[in-house]
Simulated scan of single mutants.
Amino acid sequence: MSVNESLTRNCYHPAGEAHIALQPSLSEEQIALLEKICPAGLFQRDAAGKVDVHFQGCLECGCCRLVADDAALTEWRYPPSGCGLTLRFG
């Protein structure tokens, strides 16, 4: 089973508001790291070059905190109870 097939088996229950927030002024290096490291591809640039965070598909792994430094994030927490990721195996 491929990684993408495995990820499609997961259930996502997105919260009403984001649980990840970025600093408004990130360096190009930090943005590149976020785009590269996130296994769910949450960090994407729009046409104007602004970084959008698509928190609804978050795997809650914390890679963004480890790689981009906590100074790059204004907020990172787990989603509220009943929201977030439910892993499905098999």
Score class of each variant (00 low, 15 high):
residue 20 I to W: 07
residue 77 R to G: 02
residue 60 E to L: 13
residue 90 G to V: 03
residue 66 L to D: 10
residue 6 S to K: 13
residue 54 H to D: 07
residue 85 L to G: 05
residue 31 I to F: 00
residue 2 S to C: 10
residue 88 R to F: 02
residue 56 Q to L: 03
residue 66 L to M: 10
residue 52 D to H: 11
residue 12 Y to Q: 04
residue 24 P to C: 02
residue 21 A to K: 14
residue 82 G to E: 07
residue 77 R to W: 01
residue 70 D to I: 09
residue 85 L to T: 02
residue 32 A to M: 05
residue 11 C to R: 15
residue 39 P to F: 08
residue 47 A to M: 06
residue 26 L to V: 07
residue 52 D to K: 11
residue 68 A to Y: 01
residue 74 T to P: 00
residue 25 S to I: 04
residue 22 L to V: 01
residue 58 C to T: 08
residue 87 L to W: 11
residue 21 A to I: 10
residue 3 V to I: 14
residue 63 C to L: 12
residue 66 L to W: 06
residue 26 L to D: 03
residue 88 R to Q: 13
residue 7 L to S: 03
residue 3 V to A: 13
residue 73 L to D: 06
residue 52 D to M: 08
residue 32 A to V: 01
residue 44 Q to I: 08
residue 2 S to N: 15
residue 37 I to F: 10
residue 19 H to Q: 05
residue 68 A to S: 08
residue 42 L to Y: 01
residue 41 G to W: 01
residue 67 V to A: 13
residue 5 E to Q: 15
residue 1 M to G: 14
residue 16 G to A: 13
residue 73 L to E: 09
residue 56 Q to N: 07
residue 69 D to F: 03
residue 83 C to R: 13
residue 9 R to W: 01
residue 81 S to Y: 09
residue 41 G to V: 05
residue 71 A to F: 07
residue 32 A to C: 02
residue 21 A to P: 00
residue 54 H to Q: 09
residue 28 E to V: 09
residue 75 E to G: 01
residue 46 D to F: 02
